[in-house]
């Protein structure tokens, strides 16, 4: 859990559009603190996505949100020219979406905006790391090209 627990009301205020549930509430509490969390089973140590209350690998109910690096490689990418309004996204320029396989566990993936100074597309399999961006719907994890690679 975050070091300084915030109230549930604040999560609903800061993320007005997010599909917040009892299964992912702690993930959004983490976002308030700009901490990237993923559900992890304390019985078998496996991470899983999307967030659930029972571990899909060993069926233990001892699952908690645990910090992850946000570093990994781009498995999927698309620049989309249409999408939901209300997030302040410029779809005319195209919104770059990357699905990143985290280095913590094979097959464990998170999606987020791909951010570069020149607005280029991500290359499949390129290495990336976490960056936090501020959007209309609060602090949002995003990905930048890995500094180690340059």
């Amino acid at each position: 859990m975050p070091d300084h627990p915030r109230s549930i009301d604040e999560v609903f205020d800061v993320f007005p559009n997010a599909p917040i549930t009892h299964d992912n509430l702690d993930i959004y509490l983490g976002r308030l603190e700009r901490r990237l969390l993923v559900k992890r089973c304390r019985a078998c140590d496996r991470y899983h996505e999307p967030p659930r209350s029972f571990c899909p690998d060993c069926l233990s109910g001892d699952v908690a949100a645990a910090p992850v690096s946000g570093a990994g490689r781009v498995v999927l990418f698309s620049r989309v020219h249409t999408g939901p309004a209300g997030f302040g996204i410029d779809y005319a320029a195209g919104h770059p979406i990357a699905v990143v396989e985290l280095r913590e566990q094979p097959g464990l993936r998170l999606s987020g905006q791909f951010v570069t100074p020149d607005g280029r597309d991500a290359r499949l399999d390129e290495r990336v790391e976490l960056v936090w961006i501020d959007r209309a719907d609060g602090p949002t994890p995003a990905f930048v090209p890995s500094s180690e690679e340059v």
Partner: peptide, 11 residues
């Protein structure tokens, strides 16, 4: 889709 970064449905 309520999450503009999710690679779901058409994306």
């Amino acid at each position: 889709n309520a999450n503009p970064d999710a690679a779901v449905n058409a994306v």
